[in-house]
Computed example of a mutant assay.
Amino acid sequence: MFFNLFEERIPANRCVLCARPEADALCAHCRRELERCCALSGPLCRCALPAPGLQPGELCGRCLRQPPGFRAGYCDWAYRFPLDRLINAYKHQGQLPVERALETLATGAPLPWPEADLLCPLPAHWRRRWVRGFDQAERLAAALARHWRRPLVPLLRRRRATPPQQGHGRAWRVRSLRHAFQALPASRGRRVLLVDDVITTGASLRAASHALYEAGAEEVRVWALARTLEGSHR
């Protein structure tokens, strides 16, 4: 049985999912359960959604109608139970011990784009960072930068606060995020791997990619820890 992440604090030296004594944040049993329930397999479209039978370079039907602004999307995990509980406990409940488990999942695969010059986190607005006490994408990107030996360069700034995106459809998200990001001049000529924790509709990453390309980035690709699957947007 999984530990109740929303009603209790995670004790030290325990598995963050089942609370068994464990030094590595995730016990072997829960790691296997995560892989069974949440690991993505098979080809991914540019939008990072699974697309069985898709050939390299091909797009799914949705992306054929409106291609993402970024060149490729990489993701190894589906945003569903129990991984969604871990991510929400970390972001919204301040359960910082969960960070070690998420970093373990994030760094379990090699750098998907060896040509990347740098990693850039998708920034939270300063008000949201102040409320949470940290920026989860920034911390995740820092762990990946250390593991993949790529510089971490915060090329993006939030021009304005945007309403919480959760619970809204893609069209609303696109409108609310228009001109929300500004990229620094240092973006020019750089191959940027943009890092976020969860892709829902991809609207934030599209807007951020657009800002990077406007500033002269050579190429932008995105990496996320987890991907919300179609039909499960919240």
Rank of each mutant, 00 (worst) to 15 (best):
P163T: 01
P163K: 03
P163V: 02
P164T: 11
Q165S: 02
Q165M: 03
Q165R: 03
Q166D: 03
Q166S: 14
Q166L: 03
Q166T: 15
Q166R: 07
G167P: 13
H168E: 11
H168A: 06
G169V: 02
R170C: 12
A171P: 05
A171G: 02
A171H: 06
W172I: 00
R173G: 13
R173A: 13
R173W: 10
R173K: 06
V174I: 05
V174N: 06
V174C: 09
V174W: 09
R175T: 11
R175D: 09
S176R: 14
S176Q: 15
S176G: 05
S176W: 07
S176I: 02
L177T: 07
R178S: 12
R178C: 11
R178G: 10
H179V: 09
H179E: 14
H179Y: 06
A180N: 05
A180Q: 12
A180L: 05
A180M: 03
F181T: 12
F181S: 08
F181I: 11
F181G: 15
Q182V: 09
Q182K: 09
Q182F: 03
A183Y: 04
A183V: 06
A183T: 03
A183I: 01
L184W: 08
L184V: 02
L184D: 15
L184I: 01
P185W: 04
P185V: 10
A186P: 14
A186E: 15
A186T: 02
A186R: 10
A186C: 03
S187Y: 03
S187N: 05
S187R: 01
S187A: 13
S187C: 11
R188C: 04
R188E: 02
G189C: 08
G189T: 09
G189W: 11
R190Q: 08
R190A: 00
R191C: 01
R191S: 05
V192Y: 00
V192Q: 00
V192W: 01
V192M: 01
L193G: 01
L193W: 00
L194K: 06
L194S: 04
V195T: 02
D196S: 15
D196F: 11
D196Y: 13
D197R: 02
D197I: 12
V198K: 04
V198F: 07
I199S: 12
I199G: 04
T201E: 04
G202L: 13
A203E: 13
A203N: 04
S204E: 09
L205C: 12
R206C: 08
A207C: 08
A207T: 11
A207N: 11
A208L: 08
S209E: 06
S209A: 15
H210T: 14
A211S: 08
A211C: 03
L212A: 03
Y213E: 11
Y213M: 12
Y213P: 06
Y213F: 12
